[in-house]
Each structure stands twice: as structure tokens, then as C-alpha cells.
């Protein structure tokens, strides 16, 4: 129900609420409910035993830390790409813009195959990296590379539309008032794009947590060392142990959901802060 304080000027509350609830319920919540019901079939001790086994904990560590590193890489790279693509005009800009979505268009298995071929000791990159002691394939670095590659578009595409809409007259005004480029960026641009940037990072992180196809190609899949949670889930499914698979999936989902919830709250708080400051 709408909050009493908000002025209900704009139309469409009922319609959009109806469409959203119908869709969210049918497409997202109902399947997740089915998973939770599967989980309900097992007792709490059994649930705890599965999600806290040594192998599972090792898998969380490798998955979460790799997703974290991948997200940092994508935050920096994504911001750079979005900035360059929206702010500068240079030959090949359109092509670069088009290429950003490539990692999404490739089936993840192909992405994994491409990466593992590039980083093989005879591969285009591996032949230069391996002699210098940089081994990517079948190490955590490979997992990070696969996660980062498959989620490149998130930050770029989240920041890009907002950056395009940043009020340039505001920047021009600041410039005439003697503000430096850096001041303009930190005071005007950064606060505007921050919610989108965080949103992109979170999606990138969440996607990395669940990434399977590309990672299994390059990870080595050695239990306790380079075995990610998604692979463990896949193994449990192959053992026809649906409950265990659902339990592990639930952990991934819960972490992703809490991250989303926290950052969305943060973004909302930040937006209000900016609005108040404006």
C-alpha cells in the first residue's frame, strides 16, 4: 500500500503494481518457493551438516573471494569503459561499445573454452605469462578471470545510461566557477552515478557467485582447492541428492539476496542524501 505521506500525483500505481506482482510471483517467487519446499523436506541438523561440511566451506571461500576480486576488477574496468564510451569521441568508439556485450553473447562454456585456450602454456597469453611464473589455468586466478570476463557488461551498462544523462550544464557552470576536473567528478558526477555503479557491481558480484559454465573449464575443479559452490551443487544433483543441492543453492542465494538488500538500502539512503543536498 502507498505510504500516506507520498503525494499520489502520478498515475499507474495499480497497473504497474499488478503487472509487477503477477510477474514476480509467477516467474521468480513460485520457482524459488518450490526450492524452499524441497528444503523443508530435510531437518535442520541435516541442513546444517550439508552446508557446513569442510568441503562446502572450502568451496564458499574460493567462490566468494574470487567473486569479490572479479567484482573489484569489473568495477574499475567498467567505470573506465563507461566513462570513455560516453564522454569521448574517438575512432572505433562504436565498435568498442558493441564489444562490451560480447561476454554475455557467448555461451559461458565457449567463454570458458576461449579463456582456457588463451591461457594455456602454448596459448596466445599463456606463452608469455607462464615463463614469468603467472599460471592462470587451473588456479584461483583462472576462476577470477572467468568470473570477471562473464560479468564485464554489468557495471558498464549500469553506469552508461546515467552518465549520458548527467546534466552537462551543471558541469559547465562548475567549470566557469573555477572547479577542477577532479572536483567536478567527485562532487557532481560521482554522486550521480554512484547508485548505478553500486548496482552494477552488485549484479556483477552476484552473477560471479553463480557462474558455472565458464568457471569449470578453467578452474581445475580439485575439491577443496579450486572447486566452486556451483560445481558442488552440480555434483549433488548428479548424485540425485536434490535436498543437498537445494541446501547449497540456498546458501548462495541467501548471500546474494542479503548483498542485494544491503546495497539497495545503501543506494536508497545515498539517493535521499543527494536529493537533500541538492
Amino acid at each position: 500500500m502507498p505510504n500516506q505521506r507520498s503525494k499520489h500525483l502520478l498515475p499507474g500505481f495499480g497497473l504497474t503494481m499488478g503487472v509487477s506482482l503477477f510477474y514476480v510471483t509467477l516467474v521468480i517467487l513460485l520457482p524459488i518457493l518450490a526450492m524452499l519446499l524441497k528444503l523443508a523436506g530435510m531437518g535442520l541438523p541435516e541442513f546444517w551438516r550439508i552446508i557446513s561440511s569442510r568441503r562446502a566451506i572450502a568451496a564458499y571461500q574460493i567462490t566468494f573471494s574470487s567473486a569479490f576480486y572479479a567484482t573489484i576488477i569489473n568495477g574499475v574496468v567498467g567505470l573506465l569503459l563507461a566513462w570513455v564510451l560516453t564522454r569521448y569521441r574517438f575512432p572505433g568508439r562504436r565498435i568498442l561499445d558493441a564489444l562490451v556485450d560480447l561476454p554475455f553473447a557467448l555461451p559461458t562454456a565457449v567463454a570458458g573454452l576461449v579463456l582456457v585456450t588463451l591461457f594455456a602454456d602454448t596459448g596466445w597469453y599463456g606463452q608469455f605469462l607462464e615463463p614469468n611464473g603467472l599460471k592462470i589455468n587451473y588456479t584461483q586466478a583462472g576462476i577470477v578471470a572467468a568470473m570477471a570476463f562473464t560479468s564485464i557488461p554489468f557495471v558498464v551498462r549500469a553506469v552508461q545510461p546515467v552518465l549520458e544523462e548527467v546534466d552537462e550544464s551543471l558541469e559547465a557552470a562548475a567549470e566557469t566557477l573555477g572547479a577542477s576536473r577532479w572536483q567536478i567528478f567527485t562532487r557532481i558526477i560521482w554522486p550521480t552515478i554512484l547508485p548505478a555503479f553500486i548496482g552494477g557491481c552488485v549484479l556483477s558480484f552476484a552473477r560471479s557467485l553463480g557462474e558455472f559454465g565458464a568457471v569449470v573449464f578453467i578452474a581445475g575443479n580439485i575439491p577443496g582447492v579450486t572447486e566452486i559452490v556451483s560445481l558442488l551443487i552440480f555434483i549433488r544433483l548428479d548424485e540425485y541428492n536434490y535436498e543437498a543441492a537445494a541446501a547449497l543453492a540456498f546458501v548462495l542465494l541467501a548471500v546474494a539476496f542479503l548483498t542485494l538488500l544491503a546495497t539497495n538500502a545503501l543506494a536508497a539512503w545515498q539517493t535521499r542524501y543527494v536529493e537533500r543536498a541538492a
Partner: peptide, 28 residues
């Protein structure tokens, strides 16, 4: 455009599928 109870929750729910392992998405 509107403020209502459960708004943050709704935003977070819509983002959930992207964070599910694709295999799990199929299995659910």
C-alpha cells in the same frame, strides 16, 4: 515513482535470478 511498504524487498527480489547459479535456476 511511488513509496510503499516492501519496495526495497521488491527491488531485491527482482534481482535474485541473476545471482542464482544457472543450473539451480533450471532445477527450481
Amino acid at each position: 515513482r511511488f513509496r510503499f511498504r516492501g519496495r526495497q524487498l521488491l527491488i531485491s527480489i527482482i534481482e535474485l535470478p541473476a545471482s542464482m547459479s544457472p543450473i539451480v535456476a533450471g532445477v527450481v
